[in-house]
Structure formats: structure tokens, C-alpha cells
């Protein structure tokens, strides 16, 4: 990462923090772990070079399937 990239990265992080994606929003992370499911961000690698069916996308679709 060169100096310009570093500055852009810091600008983005600072912007995100000021917008609210900082310590104050950390409670949202506990929701994903506690109420949505501990494997909310879990993944399965592609099999046979084909499409990957990630756990969370699959979970989402499985739930929507009730429609």
C-alpha cells in the first residue's frame, strides 16, 4: 500500500467511524452472534469448481422458501 492508498484508507475508516460504524454500533455485532445465529457469517468453499452455496445465503433462501 503506497502513501496515497494509506491516506484514502484512513479517510474511509474515519468517515465510517463518524457516520456511526464505530464503538457505538458494536451492539449490532452481538445481535448477529446471539439472535441471528453464530454461523451468520460462515462460508463453504466452492465444490468441484462450481457455484458456492454459502451457509448464510442458503439459510436465507431456506427461510424464504416458506413463501
Amino acid at each position: 500500500m503506497d502513501d496515497n492508498e494509506t491516506k484514502r484508507g484512513l479517510g474511509r475508516r474515519e468517515f465510517l467511524r463518524r457516520a456511526g460504524l464505530g464503538a457505538g454500533a458494536a451492539g449490532v455485532a452481538t445481535i448477529a452472534a446471539a439472535a441471528i445465529g453464530p454461523d451468520a457469517i460462515a462460508a463453504e468453499r466452492p465444490k468441484d469448481g462450481g457455484y458456492a452455496e454459502t451457509e448464510h445465503v442458503k439459510r436465507y433462501y431456506a427461510t424464504l422458501a416458506r413463501f
Binding site: I41, A43, V57, Y60, A65
Partner: peptide, 30 residues
């Protein structure tokens, strides 16, 4: 290389599906 699960009637452009795809991209799940 992202595909929907079988037997799912909802199209991939559902707002919830797109939000999950973004989450997956952010954490490198794909």
C-alpha cells in the same frame, strides 16, 4: 460463484439477498 439454494422461489434481486451478498463479499465468504 454464488448461487441460490434449491427450491427457492425468490429471485436473487430481493433486497435481503443482495444485503447478504454484500455481507459475504465484505468478509470474503465466497
Amino acid at each position: 460463484e454464488v448461487a441460490s439454494a434449491e427450491n427457492n422461489p425468490e429471485p436473487e434481486d430481493h433486497v435481503a439477498a443482495l444485503c447478504e451478498v454484500m455481507a459475504g463479499l465484505i468478509v470474503g465468504a465466497f
